[in-house]
Amino acid sequence: MQQTAVQSIQSDLKKGIQAGMSIAVGYVPVALTFGLLAKTTGLTLLEAILMSMLVFAGAAQYISLSLIAGGVGIGVIIFNTFIVNIRHFLMSASLNEKMDDAPKRTKSLYAFGITDETFSVIATRNGKSSASYALGVMLVAYGSWVLNTGAGHLIGASLPDFLQAAMSIALYAMFVGLLMPSLKKSIKVLYLALIAGCINSALILTDSMETGWAIIISTILSAAAVETAILLKRKAGVK
């Protein structure tokens, strides 16, 4: 009995690590560039790596560099970081529906690893996900993020221009690859993604708000609209 429990933890961890590999690839150009920019902004190697280890949030880390370079105060930078990352609140709440029951300590451990990318991989998996699977995904993603931050700072250069440009598609391609299997199966998924994509495009292209807020607003509006439509349809059907 105990043997099988250990085996299932190991196999879930392994599956998670495999699923996380595409994130690891996608983080390479982003983390290398972060390391490089951190160096030019005046952060030491240790500081750059420490930030990637403790914060583990790409967009917020990039923004903090430009604020540090601009001489902005610590409080403002921290507040800005909070605003940019508040979207993880929504993802954490959604993961709560998706994950197997686990002790609070386990949950607070893998909560640290929630990013746009790890969330997308874990949440689009069929059925419920275990903590070991989530930790597997996060571990590879985290490893790539931290190591490549260090590499970018040490080497002091990013990838060759053409590779850097071509690799910038990686995370988007991953999102597309994660979305497609569900999209093929369900018209509901198509509406959810399409409506959110349209609202987000409208908000971003008209410069109405910052990316973090735009993602939150478009996600909530789309999910609420689609769920309400389903509810109304069901009620009409019942009558």
């Binding site: 929504l90 959604s94 529906e97 988007y172 999209l183 509901k188 993604a193 959110a196 478009s218």
Partner: peptide, 23 residues
């Protein structure tokens, strides 16, 4: 069900318009 719908809506927002603006 609202929370279970979030992943697909998030993916839509993460892909568009970002994917068209990478360069």
């Amino acid at each position: 069900s609202f929370l279970s719908s979030i992943p697909y809506a998030v993916l839509g927002a993460l892909i568009f318009p970002g994917i068209l603006l990478i360069r």
